[in-house]
Structures are given as structure tokens and as C-alpha cells.
Simulated assay, not measured.
Amino acid sequence: MAGCHQNSASQSKEHQSSVVSAVQYGSEGINKMDIYKPSPDSNNGKLILYVHGGGWYTGSKTEAAHWAKELQGLGHSAVCLDYALANKSPDNCYPRKLMDIEKAIAFMKWNEKSGWIQKRIPHNS
């Protein structure tokens, strides 16, 4: 069909960016994160952890997707995570949520050094 094919030069940055969903960062089933990687020409961006709001009782990583995409569009990698919510179990009280966030930070640091995040999230060409 004429006019339906776009070459990579005419694709928007949104089409060149990547998302990997539900990456396990800890041993608990809830310990999952979504990783938003910007387009390949964004070499100097930061790796930013976005912790959703909800007073430790409500919310999910998907609610932060809009902000992650904004950061991604600015050339940064963004990570949104799910953590143990206090209303799901008595075992999820303080300091459980902080421990989940610490696990996510450790996972990000290890994978940033190993290059896994860059290898795991290929860019469309």
C-alpha cells in the first residue's frame, strides 16, 4: 500500500523508545518493575526510579506510566515498580515497603553496571 511504509528516520522518538514490563526485581511475586528506555540517540540520560503514590496502601506501577513516558521523552530511562501494599497483608507493614524499594535500587545498580538493562531492552531500528 502506498504511503503506509515509514522509514526509521521518519519515526518519532516514541516509536524508537522501548518498554519492558513486569521485570522481577525481588523474590516476592509483587516485586515487579516496568523499565522505560529512551530512544538510542539519548545517550546522556539518567536512570530514574519512580515510586508511585498511594500512602503505601493503594496504587500500582501502571499508574506511573504517564510520568515514566514523560521522562523517557526527555531522554531518561525510567523504572516504575510495584511494592507490597500495607492493606494486602499484616506482613506488609513498615519497613516492608522500604525493603522492596531497596531491593529495586540494588537491582537497578547491579543491572546498570552489568549492562543488562541496555541488552535486555533492544531499540527498534
Rank of each mutant, 00 (worst) to 15 (best):
M1H: 13
A2S: 14
G3I: 04
S8C: 09
S8D: 12
S10L: 02
S12T: 15
K13P: 12
H15P: 00
H15S: 14
H15T: 04
S17Q: 05
S18P: 00
A22W: 03
E28Y: 05
E28S: 09
E28H: 10
G29K: 02
I35L: 02
I35D: 02
K37R: 15
K37V: 10
S39G: 06
S39C: 01
D41R: 05
S42A: 15
G45Q: 08
K46N: 14
L47A: 12
H52G: 05
G53T: 01
G53P: 05
G53N: 06
W56V: 03
G59V: 04
S60T: 15
T62Y: 10
E63R: 06
A64F: 01
H66Q: 12
H66T: 13
H66C: 09
W67H: 14
A68P: 06
A68I: 01
Q72N: 14
L74E: 11
H76Q: 07
C80A: 15
N87F: 04
S89T: 09
P90S: 12
P95A: 01
R96F: 04
L98C: 11
M99C: 03
E102D: 15
K103I: 03
A104C: 13
A106H: 04
F107A: 00
M108N: 00
M108E: 01
K113Y: 08
K113H: 09
K113P: 02
G115A: 09
K119T: 07
K119M: 05
K119V: 00
I121L: 14
P122L: 11
H123K: 08
N124Y: 13
S125V: 13
